[in-house]
Write a protein that binds this DNA or RNA. Structure first.
Lengths: 331, 331
DNA sequence: CGAAGATCTGTAATCGTTTACAATGTATAT
DNA sequence: ATATACATTGTAAACGATTACAGATCTTCG
């Protein structure tokens, strides 16, 4: 692997000149430029980004920390972040925190140790104290979950409103014995619960049951299975992420309750399968790609201009009504 | 951010001693060790990985290059890779190549420029010549697609056999007018086609149609829509990845053909939704997590011991028979 | 013609580590 | 007591880039 010294020697110039040519600095004669470029070409020289990162005290990398890349929401977000990062010459560090504060802390450490230029991050519910210390140093955009302390930009959706809207839709369809399944690990779950309860309260109803669950299909499945045993059973289930939703669907199917007649099912997050299952599912679609894009754009802007005021962008989810909740009122 | 010099000063020792303590080298007196650790603790010192990477001429990073992280296959693989990387103190660079040889080449460059310790990589069909040059330098494990040249380890599944098995299953169920949808961008598609044709040939049948398509749901949807217009229409469709499979399902649904009676549907890749759609889909499940784990394990072993002979691990897919192909023969 | 300024190039310091080597002191063997 | 080995610590040179500074040359203009 040739270094800048090799190029300098081959071109018969100093390393300073090579560096200047490559950085397109002024005050380089055409002749020197020609010779340097020729040598670069001939040797196949590529600047060592590690060395550059050390000297410049900043790298062209950004860290993306999510709870689990397999969650379709984060898959899409990551893809958007990567696209924009690629376009701007940044490389992406990826980490899964599994909603584990300790893992989160270790990854935050690691990102700082690698001297990333910026961070896009979905913090766990008890965002580690490590985080608040860190975001003073590293420009950070928080996604998916609001965070109180710390100077950060945020990209969120209005969870309360979205859950409220979805719940209202169920109520309008005539469902009355509602059950809510929420994620237990992030504030997102809490917020969606608030929207759920608010809608019920306005209809003078109370939730039949509410469960806070870890983000696994299995958890949604087991909880739903248990809930369906109740007398009377719920007549609608709202699952606030795609994993719980998949689990709920599986349980309802197995128990043999016809959807949407005996029981309505609605949830969060549009995925490949929500329109393909039987029946197609009513969901709140989050603009995942747009969230990722916006987060990365805000990060780039802050890197450009660190004195920008901190911003909080709230995007709106979209209600996609499908057959899983299409029951005539009063049936 | 304190550097090793600050620690040295605070502890009243040289930087060499600090480094030795932190690296657990022998020949350090207990007293020095105590003082250094105390200073490290007090200052909150963390070694700068960029500087270390420069000096050591190797980093604790590895690159993961896939065509699209949103493909559930790669999502799962990446998660497995990340898990193992995390356990071993490696950080992951992620890149999407979009099956675009130019993007692939740029990312390979970038990974080398960052001096990654190793690479896990699913090459496009015309793996860039850049790749063969590169893998002489960087230990590489190729996944999903076999590659002829270059010294690399590989983790694959036996695509010919898997497609053969799946096709045979369709034939045993009495389907005779088979259509195959294959990925056009990787050798994987070609191999699966070979297995498909082999099974048909052995039954003295010929494929009704074969299509090579880009890896998008939309592509599978449009192709299937067109194919269903034929007279006579196909009575079974085999789609060799989850995206084409989703598209095919959507098209068949819309056209109103009952599955599995009028038309059988089978494909590759187990996902969240394949057992949940109507009807549940027969697929070849690839051991995605195991593939990622194995790839990372092989990479770690090679980093440990560069002189290992190159290995090719072939895992077997699992045939999951579900309702979408369950037709009594002769109906 | 000479001074001032602009242009071009190189020397050497620097970023934060690790480590070869040298220097010093201490214990052990003869 | 002397030679030898070993233990402990520090000095300084790398790793590969960028850049402040200075020196050299060339223009320009009064």
């Amino acid at each position: 692997m040739p270094s800048i010294k090799d190029v300098a020697r081959a071109a018969g110039v100093s390393t300073a000149t090579v560096s200047r040519v490559l950085a397109d600095k002024p005050y380089v004669s055409p002749e020197m430029r020609r010779r340097v470029l020729e040598a670069v070409e001939r040797l196949g020289y590529r600047p060592n980004l590690v060395a550059r990162g050390l000297r410049a005290q900043q790298t062209n990398t950004i860290g993306l920390l999510v709870s689990d890349i397999r969650n379709p929401y984060f898959t899409d977000v990551s893809r958007a972040v990567e696209d924009l990062a690629y376009e701007h010459g940044f490389t992406l560090f990826l980490g899964n925190t599994d909603e584990n504060p300790q893992k989160e802390a270790l990854y935050l450490q690691s990102m700082r140790d690698h001297n990333v230029a910026g961070l896009i991050f979905s913090p766990t519910r008890h965002a580690s104290e490590h985080f608040t210390k860190l975001n003073l140093t590293i420009p950070t955009v928080v996604i998916d979950r609001a965070v109180r302390e710390g100077d950060v930009d945020m990209v969120l959706i209005d969870n309360i409103e979205a859950a409220y809207r979805l719940t209202n839709h169920l109520l309008e369809q005539g469902y009355t014995r509602l059950v809510g399944l929420f994620g237990e690990t992030s504030v997102t779950g809490r917020e969606r619960q608030r929207g759920f309860e608010k809608a019920l309260r306005e209809h003078n109803l109370a939730p039949l049951q509410m469960r806070f669950l870890p983000p696994y299909i299995q958890a949604g499945y087991e909880a739903t299975r248990a809930l369906l045993q109740a007398q009377p059973p719920p007549d609608a289930i709202l699952a606030t992420n795609s994993l719980l939703l998949a689990g709920a669907l599986k349980a309802i199917r197995e128990a043999g309750f016809p959807i949407p007649e005996a029981i309505g099912l609605a949830g969060f997050d549009e995925t490949t399968w929500t329109p393909l299952v039987d029946p197609p599912l009513t969901v709140i679609a989050q603009p995942t790609y747009e969230i990722g894009r916006m987060a990365m754009r805000m990060l780039l802007e802050r890197l450009e201009n660190p004195d920008l005021p901190y911003r909080q962008v709230i995007l709106k989810g979209q209600l996609l009504v499908r057959r899983s909740t299409q029951r005539r009122p009063g049936v």
